[in-house]
Amino acid sequence: MSKLLRADFVRLFKSRIFWIGVLFMAGLAGFIVFTRWSDMQAVPDYYCFADDFFLIGSMYIGIVISVFMGIFVSTEYSSGTIRNKHVIGHSRMSMYLSNLIICSTASVIMNLAFIVVVMAGSALGIIGRFDISTDKIIFLILAETFSVISITSIVLVVYMLITGRIAGFIAIIMCFAMIITAVAIENRLSAKEYIEPYTFTVTSEDGTEQEIEQPLMKNPKYLTGTKKKVFQFFHDTLPVDQMMQMSNEKTCDTNFILSSIAVIVITTGAGIFIFRKKDLK
């Protein structure tokens, strides 16, 4: 597999789409740093901590790597080079694992490009300093790196097992679906048990206004019992959900890393199993 890795790393670092991805993530971070700096200039009392958004780049990474892998991995099928690798004696498992390592490296570098630009903005005083400890910053970056790799492994399954343009379409839709699911789960979990009492005004046809008081009400979206446990499990396990928690709440523990490893192992194991049986046409 070392031969495959050597060849594919050279291809990665010569790949234009990889560097476009890195520049996009760095540019995105630069744009966000600039908007926060503008806000700080416009509102005198506003102070923007760097840790408020240094991890939000990972929310976009799924889409970016889907596009990158759509070109980098799909080219192997469209150009027939995947056949060539197999013909000269590389096993399907080593081809799959090599692609996982290469694409994970690319995703992590793209994600780090975002983080580095935010950190540089903070170090240069363009935006505020970090409010959390260095140990926590390092741990969050480490955990997020595992989440990024787990998303890469999910997207890789699509590109290795489905050929043609439909693969790119499915991968991008899947990434959007993961973001939407993460937001939906977050909303349900953060729903309060009761809806606070409030008043609202109703104007009748003759112009008279009437104030209506709404009493304290049970929130139907509030989760309890097993349902809440299931939602919480997915919130702690799904990679985009983890990223959202790390980015918004700076919450993270070793379980995040363990569940990311589990996702990587399961998706890669299933991917290799099917890829070994696939006809490489």
């Binding site: 291809r11 234009r16 080219t75 150009s79 027939g80 080079t81 056949r83 060539n84 013909v87």
Partner: peptide, 9 residues
Amino acid sequence: VETPSIYPS
């Protein structure tokens, strides 16, 4: 096999 296995770029 079928088409030459080449990287177009």
